[in-house]
Structure formats: structure tokens, C-alpha cells
């Protein structure tokens, strides 16, 4: 059968849902960051699918920018993880409660 844009949208939505599920459920900060990368990849897939099925290549240029921003965000996020690990000796987000209340 013909592969249309809808197939790719379904996959993109599934990836996005799995990413959100990871962010909301896991307590390890690194796996939360990885789930955020999953969500960004879902958006990338949707962008490229739409770019293919219309007549613009702008979607693929936008994907390149998403790559660069994701790289910058991953670098800074991991720097934060290392700094937080040094000060609190844990990457469980449930144990960072000093600001609560």
C-alpha cells in the first residue's frame, strides 16, 4: 500500500507520547533528558515528513536548526546534571526538595 504522510504522523505522535511518558514517569534526570531528545526527534520526523509531501525543503532546514539547538541544550543540560550531582550527590529528581513548601 502507498505510504502517505499519515503513516509518518502516526509514528511521530507515538514517539512524542513515549517521550512524554518518559519525562513524567522516570526519576533519573539523565533518562528524563533522553526522553526530551526523543520528543525533539518526534518533531524532526514530523517536519521532514511534511517537507517531503509538500514542495518545500524548508522543513529540512528547520530540522537542521533543531539538531543544533538540541545539541546545545544537551551540552548545557549535562553540565547542569554534573554540577547538581556534585552538590547533592544524587540524580533522583524526587530527592531535590529544598525549595518545596
Amino acid at each position: 500500500m502507498e505510504i502517505t504522510v499519515h503513516h509518518y504522523i502516526v509514528i511521530s505522535c507515538l514517539l512524542f507520547i513515549i517521550g512524554i511518558f518518559g519525562v513524567l514517569t522516570r526519576r533519573n534526570l539523565l533518562i528524563i533528558l533522553m526522553s526530551v531528545e526523543l520528543m525533539l526527534s518526534a518533531a524532526n520526523l514530523a517536519l521532514v515528513a511534511f517537507s517531503r509531501f509538500s514542495s518545500h525543503l524548508d522543513g529540512q532546514v528547520a530540522v537542521l536548526f533543531v539538531f543544533i539547538i538540541a545539541a546545545a541544550e544537551a551540552a548545557v543540560g549535562l553540565g547542569i546534571v554534573i554540577a547538581a550531582f556534585r552538590h547533592t550527590s544524587g540524580v533522583r529528581v524526587t530527592s531535590w526538595k529544598e525549595l518545596k513548601g
Binding site: 539523565l30 529540512q60 530540522v63 537542521l64 543544533i68 545539541a71
Partner: peptide, 26 residues
């Protein structure tokens, strides 16, 4: 999947940047 969508440059950038650099950092 990107290659199936005929987006070759984006596909190879995904491998170089994401799989080859960001995940190494992780």
C-alpha cells in the same frame, strides 16, 4: 526513516550529530 523520505542530508546529520556526538556525551 529520513532516508526513506529522501532527506539524505538530514539523515546523515542525524547520525553525525545525535548518534555520534550527543549520545557520546550522554
Amino acid at each position: 526513516l529520513f532516508v526513506l523520505l529522501h532527506a539524505h542530508f538530514v539523515a546523515i546529520m542525524q547520525i553525525i550529530l545525535y548518534a555520534g556526538a550527543i549520545m557520546v556525551l550522554f
